[in-house]
Design a protein around this nucleic acid. Structure first.
Lengths: 138, 138
DNA sequence: CGGTATCCATTACGATACTG
DNA sequence: CAGTATCGTAATGGATACCG
């Protein structure tokens, strides 16, 4: 670290590296949809095949009907998943991954894999710094 | 609530895929940290090399000091990024990707690539369904 | 420069109750 | 079964002002 301290130039390392600013917008769009509390979880569960409403609710502990319905609708509107209602009694509705969501699922799987691989490491760091877990929504 | 009468075996999915439920917890932990409004963006920017506070602020349009500081601290506490303060005048602080964050960055890059690739498709779907409730923040 | 502190609006989310 | 409606709370996130 004996490098000369040319503060001005040093910071300008990103001639083209960083994000093109015009990308910022839709990156945020996608992150906003996918990065919410439940979307990725739903997508991950849907990987197991078409699933119906109540099964989703059972497989995702802690989700409320409100959020399940809401997130499901968002994902459907974005074309990430499909909704199929069978006009029978009792009513049956199945949700499945659309092709678009299937592609995203690959990435979600990796993220989940990463999470599984490093969550204890993160927790260790978090407790070392004495982080008050601010993400405690009960 | 016992589902004595199974309406259809077909719905009894879970071939093998769905999430092991014990994973659910830390998946949410990670998603909660990474899935917020700015974390991934910061990580993505940091890929371009060590960056200091004000540069981060300039490269991420729309972020407020409050959120930049807050998110930076969260990421630092989780060990995803490092913070280096140089005791000189004027004060200089540089943030950089930690090894842990570097691994995550690979996934973030893929997510950004996916977003770049499909955002117009998503937008098309979204308008087709007449989605009103969009993320109109900021 | 690199933050912190305070105030404030919006919103996400959960609980509960009700419907087709 | 698969939602919808309404409410209250808590978290998110921005603006502004101040500090080391």
């Amino acid at each position: 670290m004996q490098d000369s301290a040319d503060i001005g130039m040093a910071a300008a390392v990103g001639p083209c590296a960083s994000i093109p600013a015009d990308h910022m917008d839709f990156i945020r769009q996608v992150l906003d949809r996918v990065g919410d509390k439940w979307s990725m979880l739903i997508i991950a569960v849907l990987e197991g095949g078409p699933t119906r409403y109540t099964d989703l609710q059972r497989q995702i502990p802690g989700i409320s009907q409100r959020m399940l319905t809401h997130t499901l609708r968002q994902l459907t509107e974005d074309g990430l998943i499909t909704r199929t209602a069978y006009a029978e009694v009792p009513p049956r509705v199945e949700y499945a991954l659309a092709p678009l969501g299937g592609g995203l699922n690959e990435i979600v799987k990796q993220l989940i894999g990463w999470a599984a691989d490093h969550h204890d490491e993160i927790r260790a760091n978090r407790s070392r710094t004495g982080t008050a877990a601010s993400s405690s929504r009960s």
